[in-house]
């Protein structure tokens, strides 16, 4: 398995280089270094000299990808791409275009993101599996039919509706939790409750339907029939056999998103004023802060690749028949 992991890491390198290059090219197709400088310096009374000075200070005064005037390896290394992107491979994110240390910002802002995403994932899993099991247990009854109808209705509604509706009903009308904001420590609970609930309700339709399908598939298999035939009560069949085997695809689906929990949610964080990495990325895009955008895209790619690797490994744990070679 070690060999497999090493091989996968080596496969990831060209992918990460590709992601880096594509992000870089896309960004600089839309924005020139002058645009970035102008955005940082403001909109009033910005002189060309100030722009040139800003670019020179941050290494944006060089050619973008190829420096024809340099000699030797300088043609490649004395470029904006090399200066700003190569250090990413050793997770040196450097300074944002507004002058702040990106690594420090990421280390600060991942906690609020995790404060939302981890409870959402755990409570969500519990709720979705419970509902899916209930629907599977009462399959082909009115509970199942209306449950599925409700799931379809809920998955048809935009997540924005749940956010605004949740803030309006729970925060504004019922006065149960603050409408938005964030705090640290135990105080965080009252701020996190609503976004977690909204996230949970927003995904309940699609997730419950998916898990129900998985459980129903398991329930039609021979080993379940055998369990029933030997007289096991239905709840034991469900909990001891169907749930365990049904958890394998659920588990692998969950493991792949585990590393992405750090990245947070763009819309939820923005609406609930949660100072996480999702809003950090959105802010950077709006402010054309290339340094942050490339760092976050790169980090997202690394985490996603890591998630896929974890998924493969989790297969071997969940199903002993699988071997990674």
């Amino acid at each position: 398995m070690i060999n497999y992991i090493i091989r996968r890491i080596l496969y990831a390198l060209p992918i990460l280089i590709g992601v880096n290059v594509i992000t870089f090219v896309l960004f600089f197709v839309v924005n020139t270094p002058d645009d970035i400088a102008r955005m940082q310096l403001g909109q009033k009374r910005v002189t060309q000299e100030a722009i040139e000075k800003w670019k020179a200070d941050r290494g944006y005064d060089r050619p973008i990808l190829w420096n024809a005037n340099a000699s030797g390896t300088g043609k490649l290394t004395e470029t904006i791409f090399y200066i700003h992107s190569v250090k990413l491979f050793v997770f040196e994110f450097g300074q944002s275009d507004s002058g702040r240390d990106i690594g420090h910002d990421i280390s600060q802002r991942m906690w609020p993101s995790l404060a939302i995403t981890v409870p959402s994932l755990l409570l969500g899993l519990f709720a979705y599996i419970t509902f899916a099991l209930i629907l599977a247990f009462f399959r082909a009854t009115y509970i199942d039919v209306w449950g599925v109808v409700l799931c379809v209705v809920m998955m048809s509604v935009s997540s924005m509706f749940y956010i605004i509706g949740g803030q309006f009903v729970i925060g504004k009308l019922l006065h149960l939790v603050p409408i938005s904001g964030y705090d640290t420590g135990i105080q965080a609970i009252k701020f996190v409750a609503l976004p977690v609930l909204v996230g949970l309700v927003g995904s309940i339709g699609s997730s419950t339907r998916w898990y129900r399908t998985i459980f129903l598939e398991e329930m039609n298999k021979d080993y379940v029939r055998t369990a029933r035939a030997k007289g096991l009560p239905e709840k034991l069949v469900l909990y001891r056999h169907v749930l365990r085997n049904g958890l394998i695809p659920i588990l692998t689906g969950v493991v792949v998103i585990l590393p992405m929990l750090f990245i947070g949610s763009l819309i939820t964080e923005s609406f609930f004023a949660i100072p996480g990495l999702g809003s950090y990325t959105i802010d950077a895009i709006n402010r054309q802060d290339f340094a942050i955008v490339r760092s976050m895209v790169y980090l997202g790619s690394v985490l996603y690749i890591f998630g896929l690797l974890l998924t493969d490994i989790s297969y071997t744990i969940a199903d002993p028949r699988i071997r990674l070679e």
Binding site: G171, K172, F271, A273, P275
Partner: peptide, 18 residues
Amino acid sequence: FSLEKENIPAWNKFLQGY
């Protein structure tokens, strides 16, 4: 000074006296 990126939550919190 609290960060409010969206107008709706800021407006509702003003109406609540916050």
